[in-house]
Design a protein around this nucleic acid. Structure first.
Lengths: 215, 215
DNA sequence: CCAAAAGTGTTAAAGCTACACCCATGG
DNA sequence: CCATGGGTGTAGCTTTAACACTTTTGG
């Protein structure tokens, strides 16, 4: 219950996206202590005022996934996520490459990936936060280079297209996709080829910039 | 333990836009007490946890301008705007119709409109907040109906076009503008005419919806 | 009848969508 | 030589940009 000293708490919560097995997934932690014990929730941490908010979010991202320097963007801020006492939650989202992630191994608060299309009922109205994050990623995919967060340094055009298709939840025409991507200037060929399987090798590309770019 | 002095403060600040005399303007208050005494700054207020953040922002908007139910949207949240102690500022922006505004009359913290193209050096890094707000409004103008916030209930297509031109800072073709607006479905004719001056009267329009609409 | 703003259509260019065949490789 | 995915071009359509004259009114 709310203590007499109803001190305001400020926390960041973070929606960490990755693509695995053809699905867009979110990292959730299982709450093993009250409040909302037994439920899944977004990872996050309380802010103590000693660092910029974004640093806290970035640190939490590293704690959970072991990756750093990934795409991280602020979503929005809500009050009252925890009805028990005055609280502010600043939500961020991040895009990570599932292959480089090493999840924290703990018996307490164990983390796990969940497909965004089939989420459990989450603590603290976190479902709404995730829905907003998905909408934002989907919208920005079209006119920014944010997809680099989800992909390794080098990738084939097919990898990139699959990433887009998973997020947009619709199939894209291969030729048109290639034309748009290459002419956009967001990506460039590395010159290297990826040979795997009994077929023609695929050219590898990289993002021209790993800083946010808007078209 | 945190020191008693280092209590985290949470505040909302609000960028209130209006158009007057062909300029996009922002409402600023003149700080008549420390910190940053003597500087201009964005209006805002400290959050005490008793209401949703957005309600606080909406109330501050009413306090300053006397108008309510206007377009209000959250921008982003920053920490450390006040270097002296741990603080969180949640920035909002609002669009108001200059003709309906009645500014608060006080000798303390007197408010005044300033053109966004010629702002003084503001307290608490508020210049950056305003720049972001302008960018957001400009971007959303294209694919939303947010301009209704700046206009009266009924308006002519010329009024609407001038609003767009002021925000985008570029002239628009009259015929193309009319076609786009009418075919977008965002606005609809009221049937009434505005007759003023020695020329053909102009048809009046209204926004089909005053709720946020995305195209 | 004159000045002032409102209203209206067409054409060219650019961008987008749909669509099918050949290429390089490993086994 | 066959199965597999990689790579490429074009034609129709839609969307956008550029542009000038006629209409209605008040004075």
């Amino acid at each position: 219950m709310t203590s007499p000293a109803a001190r305001t708490t400020v926390a960041t919560i973070i929606v960490i996206f990755a693509i695995a097995e053809g699905e867009l997934r979110v990292l959730l932690i299982h709450r093993s202590a009250p409040p909302e014990e037994g439920r899944w929730a977004l990872p996050g941490g309380r802010w103590d005022g000693s660092e910029p908010l974004e640093d806290l979010a970035a640190r939490k991202l590293v704690d959970e996934t072991g990756v750093r320097n990934l795409y991280l963007e602020q979503l929005f801020t809500t009050s009252g996520l925890d009805p028990a006492n005055p609280s502010i939650a600043v939500a961020y989202f991040a895009l990570v490459d599932a292959r480089t992630v090493r999840l924290r191994q703990t018996s307490e608060w164990p983390p796990a990936w969940h497909p965004v299309s089939d989420l459990p009922e989450l603590a603290f109205a976190n479902n709404r936060v995730i829905a907003q994050a998905v909408a934002r990623v989907r919208a920005k995919l079209d006119y920014t280079n944010l997809a680099w967060g989800l992909l390794p340094e080098q990738f084939t055009l097919r990898d990139l297209q699959r990433t887009y298709e998973v997020i947009l939840e619709e199939p894209l025409d291969r030729r048109n996709f290639r034309k748009r991507m290459i002419s956009s200037g967001l990506i460039e060929p590395t010159g290297a080829l990826q040979r795997e399987g009994a077929h023609r090798p695929a050219a590898l590309y990289r993002f021209a910039s790993r800083e946010p770019v808007f078209l």
